[in-house]
């Protein structure tokens, strides 16, 4: 660094931005790479089954396979619409749905 750098405005160094962006994008891509090939199909079929009972949007199902030491965890997240969720829960319990 030279004497004159002291008076310069400090932006985050471009290289630091490059590193940060790479770390984020690669974390994402490595996750996708390690997931088994059947996952997208499984997601599609699960979605179809759930849709038979509850009307949900296609993008409201997230499916993830995580490997930890000794076991794998298949995580399925389904986001149900508020009113419909209650109706579905009530229907499952065999009671009439509460008015919303």
């Amino acid at each position: 660094m030279s004497l004159f750098d002291i008076f310069r405005r400090k932006d985050p160094a471009p290289a630091a931005q490059a590193k940060e962006r790479l770390q984020i994008v690669l974390a994402h891509e490595r996750g996708d790479r390690n997931s088994p090939e059947f996952l997208p199909q499984l997601q599609k079929e699960l979605l179809a089954v759930i849709k038979k009972y509850v009307p949900i949007d296609d993008d409201k199902v997230a499916i993830k396979l995580e490997r930890e030491s000794g076991c794998s965890v298949l995580e399925v997240n389904v986001e149900l619409p508020v009113g419909k969720a209650r109706a579905a829960a009530a229907a499952a319990a065999g009671k009439p749905a509460a008015a919303n």
């Binding site: 471009p14 290289a15 590193k19 770390q23």
Partner: peptide
Amino acid sequence: GEMLKVDDVLEI
């Protein structure tokens, strides 16, 4: 600070 350091690339 214009180019990734060798340590950065190694870390990634």
